[in-house]
Amino acid sequence: MQIQLSDVSFIYEKKKKKKASALAPAVLKQLNVTIHSGEMLAIAGKSGSGKSTFLQLLKGFLAPTTGSVLLDGVDPNTSKRPELFDQVGFIFQYPEHQLFSTTVFDDIAFGLQSAKLPREVVEQKVRKAMESVELDYEVFKDRSPFELSGGEKRRVAIAGVVVLEPKLLILDEPTAGLDLPSRTALFELLHQLNEKQGLTIIWVSHQLDEIVNHASRLLALKNGIFIADGSPEATLSDPVLLDAFGWEEPSALVVSRLLEQLGISSGNGKLSPEEAAAVISTALNQQQILAK
């Protein structure tokens, strides 16, 4: 799905409030951005920078004060078609906190209830959603979501959104609170949804390594303005931007740049330690041969 924001501003009417809380909307200023179908877009910014407001505009939880949000060319707000926002899946931080049913199946099927589908169709859809988050249907469908591990609970919660077959998936810090193996597994899953099902994915992240490794594009938001928009490699090696956020350049970018500067070819500009070691040892061997 293509999303287009033109001249979007959002102003919170009550001026009294001094600081926006986590969910209270902050101010956005004249945003112009197009998000293309199939992107893996990371959004970064401190709390209060307007991230949450921006995401809520895409889902229709908030309407822009001025400007328009177009989903595939249509503005659901002005055309009075709020159901268009149903194509957007929104996964909040710690989505497992929203689980409520006695079985995994019921929890995932919650969103299908209002469509009044025949039982077989519901079953088939839930099965597919569970497969796409790599939960075995037969093993998990009758279990209580509350007795699952943290990583599994999160998958159930994600399945509850994926089952509605959204075209755009928004995730607010999807890996918060997970340990490394669960984090890695979650991103494998997101890449699969992105590649196999063609889902556009937008996620908020504080982890620069995560952004470098998984995003195709990075939007950095500060005080309601996008101060950077581009490839993670380019933006996260820009000293001005890094300074504005108080970030440190990811090591993968530093090492790759060094190798490039020294004329030792580097592949994609973000070498993993193993890749970098391979490049370096090859280079050293060649130099040794030349020296002899």
Binding site: K59, F61, D86, V88, F90, G111, A115
Partner: peptide, 10 residues
């Protein structure tokens, strides 16, 4: 909002 987001427009 989270339940609305996965509620299929209920």
């Amino acid at each position: 909002k989270a339940q609305m987001a996965r509620g299929g427009g209920f």
